[in-house]
């Protein structure tokens, strides 16, 4: 019978952890489009070198610092290239939030819901109807909630904190199906 777990899988888990653990440093970031994938794969097989080629040529001046507070309340600080969406950041930096960005940024799921600082939220361009349509289905929305795939990081946002809601849920089925007989 085949061996239960290959060394390869343990090694790749190890690599994933290296990738995750290095996400807090200032990293070089490529802005080629990301390939979607299951979270565990995103963590190690999609862009294994992305986060490990740290520091070298990146000019800190092009970067915007964003602090993510994840579902467990742990803060992760990451340097982001201006113009990327918050969804891009979560994917590229392997922030590993289960189920995040299911529709890959096409405004069809609301799983990329994030909670922003009030001062940042207020300065953003207002939401288009289609974003509100989807956001309204997200779980636990607040006054400063936005869909991460619709928010582009700009220089002026430097230092902002982004909160990942407790659970990524979509409330569509709670909208109106309390049936009668």
């Amino acid at each position: 019978m085949a061996r239960c777990v290959s060394l390869r899988s343990v090694l790749s888990s190890l690599r994933s952890i290296v990738a995750i653990s290095q996400r807090s440093g200032v990293q070089r970031c490529f802005s080629h489009p990301w390939m979607p994938g299951s979270q565990q794969h995103r963590a190690f097989s999609m862009h294994p070198i992305l986060c490990s080629s740290s520091l070298s040529n990146s000019s800190a001046a092009d970067k915007v610092l964003v602090h993510f507070v994840n579902q467990d309340g742990v803060q992760i600080t990451t340097a982001v290239t201006e113009g990327e969406s918050l969804l891009d950041v979560v994917i590229k930096k392997n922030l590993d939030i289960s189920g995040f960005g299911a529709c890959e940024g096409t405004l069809a799921c609301s799983t990329c819901h994030l909670i922003l600082d009030e001062n940042i939220y207020e300065k953003l361009d207002p939401m288009v109807d289609e974003e509100v349509d989807m956001l309204d289905l997200a779980y636990g929305i607040t006054k400063t909630s936005r869909l991460g795939c619709q928010v582009c990081v700009k220089k002026w946002m430097d230092g902002m904190t982004v909160q990942v809601p407790q659970e990524i849920k979509d409330m569509r089925n709670a909208v109106g199906s309390a049936g009668s007989q």
Binding site: S9, P36, G37, H41, C103
Partner: peptide, 20 residues
């Protein structure tokens, strides 16, 4: 006419191709 919803197939494909 909702091809964007079907993007989840990419994630499912990666799961199916996981070595375990």
């Amino acid at each position: 006419d909702h091809p964007e919803v079907k993007n989840v197939i990419n994630t499912f494909t990666q799961t199916a191709q996981h070595e375990r």
